[in-house]
Write a protein that binds this DNA or RNA. Structure first.
Lengths: 196, 196
DNA sequence: GTCTATAGACGGATAGAC
DNA sequence: GTCTATCCGTCTATAGAC
């Protein structure tokens, strides 16, 4: 919201830097990333980067926002919820198609536990919001119990956990390709029998 | 299997070092951990540690094995599978009770994606094995379809993904305490209606 | 077996020229 | 706005004394 657009040229540079940083963070993690590496990929020097983002930490939070912007809420969006399973399965496919997005998420989230409070807080809020939205959508659609008997809150928690877990495992084992399909099947069971 | 017991005294030192390293890795991640920090916690100097584990990488793989040993297969073990949901829920509770185990797992796994091949391979095999065992147990119990209609393989994948995801989210949001319960409920749905 | 001392490398951040 | 040069800190790993 804040970092994207300002002065015409300056904004473009910022985007270049963020894009470079996103890739490098995904490949090497936060601690493993040197500003030099980001700078090189963006086509300038360390000081060039530090001009726009005066510290590595600032750069990190900017990248997290940038990632979220790119990955624009495939979930909990305003679609008709008839085929919610398919939508969620598509999220998985989409993130796997551009692994940087999934990887930077996994890596930064895990690293946030061992590091700065800034990133930690970002993820904390991120999940609270996402979970709240998802549960609300389910409640709106089904009331306080899904056909399967689960509460919307429990189902939302479970689905989001499964999403994260699958993405992580998929990153580890690129050979398997059946994750979206599994996700679809499991979701169908989790929601419960749909009356025709 | 290999690293635990050797000479009486030396083995004890090794365990002390591994125990210290487990905690420090959990708190700071691999890259964030200095051998000095491990040494201090174990009550000797950097060179003392390097005497037993001649490099940081060697120490890492030893710690991963140690962790696995501690967390001894709560899952896919040889219990009666009647109350499998409860068992899995208990895994979550157990790991949350000693957060180092869960945290070192999450953190090292994510970091393995950005770093060394050694850790990456460890996790790759770890999950293949775990998933195989779990699917085999389900197949043995239910045949090629669970009562819910899912295949054992799909169910195993989903459950393990959910386990990881929940542990990670729980680490992020220590306030919530309903994860084991959710896990139990969701598993009941995933397995399917149990005939009385 | 554990220590001190040191080599050798790298990363973050600042100052100041252009 | 982007560069060069530099300071200071930290890290892994080795060599050698006790």
């Amino acid at each position: 919201m804040t970092t994207a657009r300002r002065e015409g040229a300056s904004g473009a540079r910022r985007s270049e830097i963020l894009d470079a940083a996103l890739h490098v963070f995904a490949e090497r993690g936060y601690r493993g990333t040197s500003i030099d590496a980001v700078a090189e990929r963006a086509g300038l020097t360390r000081q060039g980067v530090l001009h726009y983002y005066p510290s590595k930490k600032r750069l990190l939070v900017a990248v997290l926002g940038y990632r979220e912007e790119l990955s624009r809420e495939h979930l909990a969006a305003d679609h008709p919820d008839e085929d919610w399973p398919n939508q969620v399965a598509e999220v998985i496919s989409h993130e796997h198609a551009s692994p940087w997005l999934a990887q930077v998420q996994s890596v930064m989230m895990a690293e946030s536990m061992t590091g700065d409070v800034a990133a930690q807080q970002y993820f904390h809020e991120h999940y609270r919001t996402l979970q709240g939205k998802t549960a609300a959508r389910l409640a709106e659609r089904y009331g306080e119990r899904l056909p399967s008997g689960l509460t919307p809150r429990a189902a939302a928690t479970a689905v989001l956990a499964m999403l994260d877990g699958m993405q992580q495992q998929w990153l580890l084992d690129g050979e398997r390709s059946d994750y979206p399909e599994i996700m679809r099947d499991v979701l169908a069971v989790l929601l419960g029998p749909t009356p025709v």
